[in-house]
Simulated scan of single mutants.
Amino acid sequence: MTRSELMPIGVFAQHTGLTASALRFYADSGLLPPAETDPVSGYRYYSPAQVARATALRQLREISMPLATVEAVLDGGAEARIRLLDDHVARIADDAAAARRTAAALKSALGAPAPGLLIATLRGPVLADAVEQVLSATAHEPGIPVLAGLHIEAGHEAITLTATDRYRLSTRTLVPERPPEQTWVGTVDGDDLRTALPTVRRDALVRVEAVPHGIWLRTTGRGDRHCRLLPEEFPDHRQMLASLGEATTRVTVAKDALLRALEEHPGERVALHLCAQGLDIRPPDDDRPGTRLPATVTGGAVPVPHTVQIHFETTTLYPAVSTALGPDVMLDLRGPDRPVTIRSADRGDLTTLAMPVPSHHPA
């Protein structure tokens, strides 16, 4: 390659997003030596083929990867690169979680914080179970941080917890032990709540207090826990619930039997075939009988000349069923392209909506 095809350090810096001083440092460390160095002037020149390596180096350093690991990623094979990246991100996540726990403890230790607005007093184990169940419908979606949060609506008679990942929506209503001082609405960081759950679960009564940028979970002698508020607006789930319409078909089936069938089902999608005889679990494009479960099917679809079928991603349906309360679950259907309501057959305070996926073949 001739000198005219090479880039001076300033031009190379513009192409890669690295400063000239950073390029000198990476050259001296052996991570990114220049393609050529003028023996008289000492000027450094880089080839176009080095742009990709320099860009990757910059990105790895932007996520705080140590130099030794950066070198291993840049010079390793594909599998090694993926493993090293995953290990590094996991360490960052663990460090962030530890920092949040330490910060919460410091907030409590550095002088007693002023009491917040009491929005609920709940039994610790009940609150922990409800939060854990509803948080199963959260997701860490790039650019939509509110989907990782738990929406809390505290009224005079009840407190409602809601979460959604856009494919599922879970909501549960709890009756507080003591009425709140006034109504309150906010969306709380789901990761902070998960960290607080072990403490909350072991306390008989937990006071939930709202402060300007979060909530405090006040426990008895086990250490209070602070959870941050998310500033983004929570999706208008009430409008969606109001627009659902009446269910046309209801299926009541044993929860454990349905979960076992889903666990044993191959593939990423599952078809539920409903008929007067029960519920059939099979692959979406397979007309052969699958796993038949005894079920009670009522509503406009019964009696049926053939079957009613609805398709789901298994990753959407399984957690919706697994978090239901009680031994039996009810599925309220509104059509193959409408959300399905999944709830306990005898305890209706936890409700989940699961969005079906289109079928390749008409029902």
Rank of each mutant, 00 (worst) to 15 (best):
M1A: 07
F12C: 04
H15C: 11
L23C: 11
R24T: 11
Y26Q: 01
D28Y: 02
L31R: 06
L31K: 00
D38N: 06
P39Q: 09
Y46D: 08
A52I: 02
A56F: 01
R58C: 01
Q59G: 01
Q59A: 11
E62M: 00
S64C: 01
V73E: 05
G77E: 05
E79Y: 02
A93P: 05
T102D: 09
A103Y: 06
A103T: 15
A105W: 06
L106Q: 11
L106Y: 06
L110Q: 12
L117W: 09
L118V: 03
A120V: 04
L122Y: 06
L127H: 08
A128D: 13
E132F: 07
E132A: 15
V134S: 01
A137R: 03
A139Q: 04
P142N: 10
V146I: 15
A148M: 06
H151M: 09
I152L: 14
A154E: 02
A158M: 04
A158G: 08
I159R: 05
D165N: 14
Y167C: 12
L174N: 05
V188P: 13
G190F: 01
R194N: 00
R201M: 12
D203G: 04
A204G: 03
A210H: 00
V211K: 00
W216H: 02
L217C: 13
R222W: 06
D224K: 00
R225K: 06
C227S: 05
L229I: 04
L230N: 10
P235G: 03
D236F: 10
D236K: 08
Q239L: 15
M240C: 02
L241V: 10
L258E: 00
L259I: 13
R260S: 13
R260Y: 09
A261C: 01
E264G: 10
P266R: 00
G278H: 07
P284F: 00
P284I: 01
L293V: 01
T296P: 10
V297T: 15
A301T: 15
T307C: 09
H311C: 08
T314M: 07
T323C: 07
L331R: 08
D337S: 12
T341W: 00
T341D: 04
R347E: 13
R347C: 05
T352R: 03
T352L: 11
L353I: 11
M355C: 12
P356S: 10
H361M: 11
A363I: 10
